[in-house]
């Protein structure tokens, strides 16, 4: 299903994105970040704005399978991309293994960083460079947690990494 929003004005550009498997054709101003587009234009508010400067990881999403900070990506530079946000993790009413592991390990308090943590963890698993707990800590270091749930976050990611399921 295609959703077209906003009429074009002079600076605006048309882009096509697949977001959580759904196609979107959008007309956006060039200064709109992918983060603002997801939250404000598409209404996917699961992705969080923490710092808006690449310093916290709350806005992490997967773009063509790679985790990036959506606050530092201009939407117009992602034409044609496939985006996965936290809303794309559960399927058929069933939580994703990482989501279940985060619940099981109590890997959050306020939950504000959690969507970014989970997207980042999926990126980590797909990249396949983490072998040890130290590696997981280091390769999750792009996601800050003001509540300090780091130990439990590491436990959750380790469990999915080692068992494939929580």
């Amino acid at each position: 299903m295609d959703k077209t929003v906003n009429p074009p004005t002079s600076n605006d550009l048309q882009i096509a994105l697949t977001i959580n498997g759904q196609g979107h054709t959008l007309v956006v101003e060039p200064w709109v970040t992918l983060l603002d587009l997801l939250r404000d234009n598409i209404g996917l508010t699961g992705t969080k704005k923490g710092c808006d400067h690449g310093q916290c990881g709350a806005c992490t999403v997967l773009v063509n399978g790679k985790r990036i900070n959506s606050c530092l990506a201009l939407a117009v530079t992602k034409d044609g991309a496939e985006i996965t946000t936290i809303e794309g993790f559960a399927s058929g009413g069933k939580l994703h293994a990482l989501q279940t592991a985060f619940v099981h390990h109590d890997a959050f308090q306020c939950g504000y960083c959690t969507p970014g943590q989970i997207c980042s963890a999926q990126g980590l698993l797909d990249e396949g460079h983490a072998k040890t707990r130290d590696d997981v800590r280091e390769l999750m270091s792009g996601n800050l947690c003001r509540c300090g749930a780091y130990t439990n976050i590491t436990d959750a990611v380790m469990q999915v990494m080692l068992d494939g399921s929580p």
Binding site: G54, G57, T60, K66, R67, I68, N69, L72, A73, S120, G123, L124, E127, L139, S141, G142, N143
Partner: peptide, 9 residues
């Protein structure tokens, strides 16, 4: 340097 997310971009 930076973070995994930043290094990807």
């Amino acid at each position: 340097g930076a973070s995994p997310q930043l290094r990807n971009a």
